[in-house]
Write a protein that binds this DNA or RNA. Sequence first.
RNA 1: GUCCCCAUCGUCUAGCCUGGCCCAGGACACCGGCCUUUCACGCCGGCGACAGGGGUUCAAAUCCCCUUGGGGACGCCA
Length: 470
Amino acid sequence: MSEQVRTRFAPSPTGQLHIGGVRTALFSWLHARHFGGKFILRVEDTDAERSTDENTEQILASMKWLGLDWDEGPFFQSERLDLYNSYIRKLLDEGKAYWCECPPEVLEEKRGQALKDGKKPKYDGTCRNKGLGPGPGRVVRFVMPDTGVTSFNDMIKGTISMENEELDDLILLRSDGMPTYNLTVVIDDATMNITHVIRGDDHVNNTPRQVKIYEALGFELPLFAHVPMILGPDKTKLSKRHGATSVIAYQDMGYLPEALVNYLVRLSWSHGDQEIFTRDELITYFDIHNVGRSAAVFNPEKLLWLNHHYIKTGDPARLADLLTVFIRERGYPVPDAEYLRKVVIDIRERTKSLDDMLDFGGFYFHEVDPPDELKQQHFTPDLAKVFEDLIQGFGQTDLTDRAKAEEVVKTVIDQYAMKFKTIAQPMRVALTGKTVSPGLFEIISTLGKDQVLPRLQKALAFMKSQESGQ
RNA sequence: GUCCCCAUCGUCUAGCCUGGCCCAGGACACCGGCCUUUCACGCCGGCGACAGGGGUUCAAAUCCCCUUGGGGACGCCA
């Protein structure tokens, strides 16, 4: 039993990698890493109609972004057609599969009729004993037993059994010559020596069928683990109509990969009351047996909270680096790394995503011109003298030293017997163009003389113009 | 409709397997308060759940059954 653990993730490149998919990938990856096993990536691209290279590339990019590295692959099913065909031939030779000529339209009609009659829509076996050979428009079907029960043990859900009469003669080979999912997944998992098949809950019903294929092919069964679905707020399977669901979308919105991973891993899985996990902790604590059995509702707010957590606690230099993409996107020039690092430290407590950082801290990247309303309200003529003194004081001070900047302000307000409160907001508006911002001295120190002085001067000019205008 | 699965605060969950420590703990969100140069952060407090009904037992969120509710699957998609 010292068999090495081998898990896989098998996305279909018919769309972008989505939240539900990665969570499954994450569990699978974690399971392999926990046991020091191998994680294999396999692209299931037998749906020639909808699979695209672009999707494949984006999926791989998303996996890398999240740090879900794989040890083998990516393998492409479209390159393994010969393998599948040899097994189909074997099944045909052994009488475990047969050719079928039923036209799709007829099948569809029968299905619709059965559904309407309240019966199970299942292939009626019309061609099962016709002894047909290959031909245009024909497919190969698997001979499913009509009686008996098929059951398997699921690591998450326990024993699941199904009456064989519920199963029908599924198609193994399409009329276009491409094999179908239920066949390829079995052949691949078996030949790639996958020990633990970890996949979405929506595959539970397929599993008994696949078990039959495993048996027909003489393969040993892997262990199965079906992870619960992720639902939207309306409790239906999470999909595009619930809003952003692709990994890329979250990346673009300024989410950190560690936040997404941490959020996703806590859906249907937990380790006591712990909410925050480092990657190493996840690897040591993760146990597939601790995955719950019920579906989870995706909660964007908790994801945001985690993102904020990682922004607050992450390395500012790294965050600064990640931020450059977002700065360019807004068309601002990218400041030097040290300046950016200070910006991050100034604003990280008030911004929950990288994108948010630009919304909130835009004034760090461009000149400001406060709205008239704020100017009228805060740049009152009586403050002109104070601002003059502040400008003079700042001009002679090393503003990178926050304490010194603070000293300047203290001296000035003492001189006028003012409270700091009185000039705080006017200064804030002058420096940021807004009434909400990081602490003034943080801003001053980060902005530096070059930006602080002109902004205060601009405010001062407004104060004076108000004075003379009256 | 049929089959499969699921069921603790609005949401994610601990506890359930190995009944008593649970008149149910944590987290997000929300609401108050403190801190304070704004806003945040932080800290303190509050609101808030064992779906219902039967059993079993001295004792049930925990075990069993039924009901109800929810989800998923019924493709020449994966």
